[in-house]
Amino acid sequence: MKDMLIEERTAMEDVKISAKDVNVWYGDTHAIKDVSVEIKDKTVTAFIGPSGCGKSTFLRCINRMNDTIDICRVEGLITLDGQDIYDPKVDPVQLRAKVGMVFQKPNPFPKSIYDNVAYGPRIHGLARNKAELDEIVENSLRRAALWNEAKDRLQSPGTGLSGGQQQRLCIARAIATEPEVLLMDEPCSALDPIATAQVEELIDELRTSYSVIIVTHSMQQAARVSQRTAFFHLGSLVEYGETDRIFTNPVDPRTEAYITGRIG
């Protein structure tokens, strides 16, 4: 028994998340069709594909955000560190603490910057006292490259920041809970180019400690930040591999068509 476990562990040594034959339905719509993918730890993985191809839906399956939608049904196996995340014993709340998420539109809570970042640590009980919490907040803001801009206005509302700052605040908020995986759903689509560059730089840094999955519309962005890329089309995973290879030498004609801008 123990041997088997060890074997299994070594086999998927650097595989953080593994999906096998995942199907998702929204009511009668078949949104994700038989997707199987293995996502490595400490890597940035990009999901690309035309709108409505199911990349965001798949992303939301990984931390069970789809649970909040009544009509959504997920089939197949998704594991995190070899553990089935859709197992009835799994508490989605615990799962989401490990798999953080950053959304398309910056969505700071209508609270102070400090409280925004401290929200996760507080609900998960990560800090024993105020000093520890202060430290977590400072570290998170530093890692999100927001500390210098925000340190003097920690008590002012998070909604008062600029769009790029807000998104970095949301990233800081997400990493404050010490997740293992960070899901990013088009994190830059609402930002201007300068803010986008800042966030992209941040993503590259985050790779050192997390497995990051980013959904993006922009192929340039995928090429810039990711090491591995998955191309989705009409709910299916068409191609998955090293980013460089996907962009330079796609195997599937649909991938090539998308990259050269013929479908999109």
Binding site: N63, M65, T68, V93, Q94, L95, R96, A97, K98, G100, M101, V102, F103, K105, N107, P108, F109, P110, Y119, G120, I123, H124, C170, R173, A174, T177, L183
Partner: peptide
């Protein structure tokens, strides 16, 4: 209250 607020909170693992 916008849905994004809820998503943000759930995404952090809040009940």
């Amino acid at each position: 209250v916008p849905q994004s607020m809820r998503d943000g909170s759930y995404g952090l693992g809040a009940t």
